[in-house]
Structure formats: C-alpha cells, structure tokens
C-alpha cells in the first residue's frame, strides 16, 4: 500500500467535515444523556477505529459513566489465523453484569463484527446493550442489527479519517473522507 506524504492528497472528497462531526457528536451525547438519565452507563469502544469518536462522545454525555475498550481480530484470510476464527485481542477490563452497556462503533457495514461482539457481550450478563455508531453504511449490511444511535448514514464508498483507516493509515484525519481509488489500487 502506498500513501502520499500529505494524506489529504489521497482523499477525493470530504464526506463529513470536522464541524459536521462535532455537531453530530454533541447531538448524540445529548440523546444518550437523556435516554440514560438516572442510570450509570458503560461505554465500550471497539478498537481501534472508534477511539476518536469515543473520546469525543464520552465528553458530551452528562452522566456518571465508565469506559472500557475491546479489540477483536479482523478477517485476513492468512495462515497466521491459526484457528480461522475471530479472536478477542483485548477483552473488557471490568465486569459488566447488570450494567447498561453502550457499544461505541466507528462504522457499521456488514455487521459481522458487531453481531459477534453483541453475542459475546450478552454472555457477560449486562442489564442492557445498545449500539452507537458514528457511521452506518447500510448498503453493505449482511447481518441486520438494530443500531440505536446513528450519526450519519453514508453512501457506499471507502471512507477514511476520524479513526477509520486503510492499512492502519489515515486514522488521524480530522474529517471523514472518501479515499481515492489510486490510494488503494496498486
């Protein structure tokens, strides 16, 4: 994979500006604060893509809350995946039994990872699990899972920035942009 030194050059179009994202995060924070009023919430961020979203969202929620992080292996089809199955690379650091959990995701496309995570987390007996995703790409959906809080529904394009990567690059862009095909087509 080859990327430009100036990452902005690889972006064909800014889909969501920094301002649009900031306004939406505030809005989501207000909704979540209202919905969970009087309760204690655990935000679970799915590494690595949702990290910026999680960091911004948690500061817009006016509730006592805990945060936790999870990371799962992604499909790569290589021989290094000895089991051929998704693995938890980083599990929760605290129990969630009888707690209200909000799973924070950067983007939902096929829903395969989310489906796995929800099944996994349900096994830890939380009081409730809901999902908050900054981006929803319904055109790619395989597993239909209700997403309780959606920032933006986006078209079927390869997006990077604000945590989203291609080959571990572009996560630090402050906006969400569509990657130019030249950046991923060798």
């Amino acid at each position: 994979m080859k990327h430009s030194q100036d990452l902005n050059e690889d972006v064909g179009e800014i889909l969501l500006s920094e301002d649009q994202i900031r306004i939406k995060v505030v809005e989501l924070g207000k909704r979540i604060s209202a919905d969970y009023a009087g309760r204690e919430l655990t935000l679970v961020s799915v590494l690595k893509g949702s990290l910026p979203f999680m960091a911004d969202l948690m500061r817009q929620i006016d509730l006592p809350l805990r945060i936790d992080l999870m990371e799962v292996s992604s499909y790569g089809g290589t021989a290094t995946e000895s089991s051929g199955l998704v693995r938890i690379l980083k599990d929760l650091s605290a129990p969630i039994d009888d707690r209200d959990v909000l799973l924070v995701e950067d983007i939902i496309d096929t829903g395969l990872t989310l489906n796995y995570l929800i099944r996994y987390l349900r096994g830890k007996n939380p009081r409730s699990i809901k999902v908050c995703a900054l981006l929803d790409k319904p055109a790619r959906r395989l597993v239909e899972i209700p997403i309780d809080y959606v920032g933006f529904e986006i078209p079927d394009a390869f997006v990077v920035g604000y945590g989203l990567d291609f080959g571990e690059v572009y996560r630090n862009l402050r906006f969400v942009g569509v990657l130019r095909p030249e950046a991923y087509e060798s």
């Binding site: 499909y75 089809g77 995946e81 051929g84 199955l85 998704v86 395969l112 990872t113 489906n115 796995y116 099944r119 597993v143």
Partner: peptide, 8 residues
Amino acid sequence: RILDFYQV
C-alpha cells in the same frame, strides 16, 4: 471462510 471467521 469469512462467515466461519465471524462464527455465522
């Protein structure tokens, strides 16, 4: 293989 990976 992808479905297997995600245990679907």
